[in-house]
């Protein structure tokens, strides 16, 4: 098992550091560049959620990302100590649907982050233990 932990401050301006690091780490796996990009996107979405929703955009808190990999599975854990999400949200969320012929004004602006993670990764789970929120996602190699 190979494992690395990365910690950033809860500042949206720093999220690219996590994204670019995850992309580079994925490049040592058999995943294509396109898949590495999508995994980067999923981790960025999860970290954004921690900063925007758990920490309410307040700087000065830690978001911890753990990337681990064995011969079969790539796992990423995103951990924060902010407000917890209702785990039901993860279960019920899906990509916002719309009629392509509908009025542009009716297209939803938000609500795609978790849906992207669910579509790209093989499994996503969320739990809160001792004040720490963990979003865990994995993809089979």
């Amino acid at each position: 098992m190979k494992k690395i932990k990365i910690i950033i401050d809860s500042d949206l301006k720093d999220v690219f550091l996590i994204g670019m690091t995850i992309n580079r780490l994925c490049s040592i796996t058999p995943f294509s560049d396109s898949e590495c990009y999508k995994i980067e996107l999923c981790v960025v979405e999860a970290v954004n959620n921690s900063i925007i929703h758990a920490y309410q955009n307040e700087k000065g808190h830690e978001v911890e990302v753990t990337f681990s990999m064995d011969t079969r599975i790539l796992t990423v854990d995103v951990c924060d100590t902010g407000r917890s999400m209702d785990p039901e949200i993860l279960q019920s969320i899906h990509m916002p649907s719309f009629d392509p012929d509908s009025n542009d004004l009716e297209i939803p602006e938000r609500g795609r982050g978790l849906a992207i993670i669910k579509e790209v990764m093989d499994h996503v789970s969320y739990k809160t233990i001792d004040g720490k929120n963990w979003l865990t996602m994995f993809r089979e190699l």
């Binding site: 990009y37 960025v44 954004n48 795609r112 982050g113």
Partner: peptide
């Protein structure tokens, strides 16, 4: 180089 759901939004 990169877009996320907030960028799409």
């Amino acid at each position: 180089d990169f877009i996320d759901s907030s960028g799409l939004g």
